[in-house]
Design a protein around this nucleic acid. Sequence first.
RNA 1: GGCGGAGUAGCCAAGUGGUAAGGCAGGGCUCUGCAAAAGCCCCAUUCGCCGGUUCGAUUCCGGCCUCCGCCUCCA
Length: 496
Amino acid sequence: MSDAHAPRLFDSLSREVRTVAPADGKTLRLYCCGPTVYGPAHVGNLRTFLLQDVFRRVVELSGTPTLHVRNLTDVDDKTIRQSQAEGVPLSEFTARWTARMHADAGALNILPPHHEPGAVAHIPHQIQLIQRLVEARHAYVAQDGSVYFDVSSFPQYGRLSRLADRQITTGQHAPATETDREEADEYARDSAADFALWKARKPEDGPNFWPSPWGDGRPGWHIECSAMSIEYLGDTFDVHSGGVDLIFPHHENEIAQSEAATGCTFARHWFHIAHLMVEDRKMSKSLGNLFTLDDVRGRGFSPETLRYVLISGHYRQPLNFTWDSLAAARSALARIAKLDEALAAVAPDSGPRGCLSTTLLPLGDARHGMASFAPAWDALLDDLNTPAALGRLFTAAAEVESRIRSGELPPGQAGAERGALHRILFALGLRLVAEEPPAQAPENIRALAEARWNAKQSRDFKEADRLRAEIESRGWIVRDGKEGFELNRKFPQPNA
RNA sequence: GGCGGAGUAGCCAAGUGGUAAGGCAGGGCUCUGCAAAAGCCCCAUUCGCCGGUUCGAUUCCGGCCUCCGCCUCCA
């Protein structure tokens, strides 16, 4: 792989943009913190997964295969509480939301990870890791059988979040909720900074407990990511990703427990994605602006449109999600589809029209095949600048369109440009979905349209206009072509 | 209070020490009986505010204002 054409990405630990390269020179090992499966993912969650997906696509297109692991948190306070409230076994409950997650990810054209381990299926791995930490005296067992990581035993603690010295004494300075936190199972810690590796069984956990050397209980949250990333990717792997909110404490704790156990650098590169805002406000249930993919569909926007919106801002910048931006994205996507059509018309041998194949995953130095779209590709290599890439994509599109119109684009070149367009769209994960065939208008509407056409042919424009208005009042739009008319629904339908 | 991030046209959003990509929306024109489609063109003397450095700052420095995130289990 040519280094100059390798992707570069900001690393939140070193705080600089660094080239991303696999430590073993072959496969890029990527771990992404996945969802807690207790409900449908909202657009903010989806944005994180989407940018991780674009990153993976860029890495693969640039010639490096990936080994992608994304976990499922299927045991924690929320999953347990919810499943019990609904009276279903935890596994059944999380299986349901896992299926939903898969459906949403599929609809958004997110590549499935190579491994998708769940915490429940990896209890032994977690126990083993905790045991190593206890033996190395990085962890201690509390009176109730919970196990805590001793933060004071890991001097580098706080490097990622730059909380450093202050954090160690957080117990004194943390906000007012400290008393709440001291309740329940957390009282047994030596220090407020210590965090749970294993949580002793509590009555409210119901049947959700597992045996361990320290008694019945369940794993803490952070340990699953360490155990499973080490299991599938090794003691050291290349890139670790998640939302910015995971920097502290989750990733900080992962580093501590992993490196304390293995003595190796945990992740070589940290890739954090900024939060999504909705109409300039943070997303929250109380504001009623927590949207899911289904909500977006319900407003008549396709998953492709949502994908476009969610990658239209830089991953390190908070993105402001609005319904207007979805409408804008739909138009933008339609324009790209038109460019594809125009290219296909000039180069009929360049592949089927309409729906874009998404199964091809060409490896190799993609830049050679990027033709006019090379600047867009370069933007993706440069710290995954998706908005700049989209901007350059349209700049290139305007140039190519202009050459098509002036007849300066020979079929061979048109085919190459079309291939390049498909490659850049593949990198972005954007599919050009075939337009829904126009819905068949009901008989009475068709009759009106026929009547109007006949009136128009006999140059009775007054009657033609009257009928057009009549048809429109019934929710249909007439569009005239050379040979005849076309009927379309007046308002965009769901998935339009 | 601590740490981190952000404020660029009606909306979304890049970017740079040398004079503001792109998308959407909007406007004008061409073409259409009308409408649509298509095409051509226009659309930030200005980058939160105030100072400073500089030949020159939106870009660097200082201060201020506003917003957002994290500060123990939220992507």
